[in-house]
Amino acid sequence: MSNLEVHFHEIGVLDRIAAGDTFVHRLDPRSKLLATLLFIVGVVSFGKYEVSALLPFFLYPVVMAAASGMPAGLLGRKLLIVAPFALLVGILNPFLDREILTAIGPVPVSGGWISFTSIVFRFMLTVSAALLLVGTTGIHGVCFACEKLGMPRVFAVQLLLLYRYLFVLADEGIRMFRARSARSFSGRAPGPGLYAQMIGTLLLRAIARAQRIYLAMSCRGFDGAFRSRTPVGWHVRDTAFLLVWAAFFTVARCVNIPEIIGSMFVQ
């Protein structure tokens, strides 16, 4: 099985985990979406040199992963897949910003390295929170929550179909690349011309397949609205969940908790 196929099957694992039945899974999708949004706003609103104040925010993904049974290994692998994007964003910082801001023991640390670390932390926090949201709610739940919170239905359905289209595209891609591998006897990489042709064909195949899937949906009464079988409703537990995390995010945003704890030890 190629790496592409492995990653494709791992995307599906999130759907399987989302069908779980823990306290976190039973929460209303809206409360989880709002908590995740508050979390992301809190994390990205810090200054570019902030590192220590970000640390308490790791509590949220850790607690959510533990409470929902999301395997840490899976979460880690997903973070690694997206990691190059974050590294690309921050990799030049240590070279461009060489002003020494602090020191770890005798080693001076420049502002570039601090901002780079901050970017990596923020990336880990925000991406893991988003993965946990999808992994405990399912993409259907997330789209349902978006719609209920005021997103126009057409956008919510677009988001849902975009996610489904990923599977169609990946499935068609896997078939094509499998066929190519079967006839690449020399093992030599094909030229860019072949890849360009394959990508064009992949698009056409995926569109044709998507049309057939849309027909299947139309045949079963799809009218532009996705309906969920899972009964949802806002309960006291949702209010409590949202309030507790909102309070924690506010405190963690306004007060540098690690600094306070550190100063207590120093004294």
Partner: peptide, 18 residues
């Protein structure tokens, strides 16, 4: 082409829900 939901039961429920 016909099965597009995350689980078999979700797929079977799609028509009746609509």
């Amino acid at each position: 082409d016909q099965l597009f939901m995350p689980t078999v039961s979700d797929d079977v429920a799609f028509g009746p829900l609509n």
